[in-house]
């Protein structure tokens, strides 16, 4: 019989995994850059946060837990900041927010 904390950790991990997958699919499926920003928001906050909270619950009161809390804090600080700054740079770089058309000829890649 698993303890309540284990159940909660499992639920958090599964929820986090679901959010990560949804975010990744959104990153590929959404039509243009400014909508894709929303998809990475899901990865960077909900998916990341739930997964790390699940791990914190698994670790209990220990040094790994402290490190996980630090990771959580730093990622919550940097992830949204980076996304915000990137969206702002895209606006500034005259990427059209309505069509999301590229500012320069798209690079031909594999």
């Amino acid at each position: 019989m698993p303890s309540l904390i284990d159940l909660a950790a499992g639920a958090c991990l599964l929820g986090g995994a679901a959010f990560l997958l949804v975010g990744a699919i959104g990153l590929v499926r959404l039509p243009d850059f400014f909508t894709r920003v929303h998809a990475t928001g899901i990865i960077d906050t909900m998916g990341m946060g739930l997964t790390l909270i699940g791990l914190i619950l698994l670790a209990g009161w220990s040094l790994p837990s402290v490190k996980l809390v630090l990771i959580l804090g730093f990622m919550l600080l940097t992830g949204p900041t980076a996304t915000h700054a990137l969206a702002k740079a895209a606006l500034h770089g005259r990427l059209d927010p309505l069509s999301g058309r590229p500012p320069e000829p798209p690079s031909s890649s594999a």
Binding site: F33, A89, A90, L95
Partner: peptide, 10 residues
């Protein structure tokens, strides 16, 4: 896939 540079960075 890109297509824009911003997408790659994202």
């Amino acid at each position: 896939r890109g297509p824009t540079l911003y997408d790659r960075v994202l």
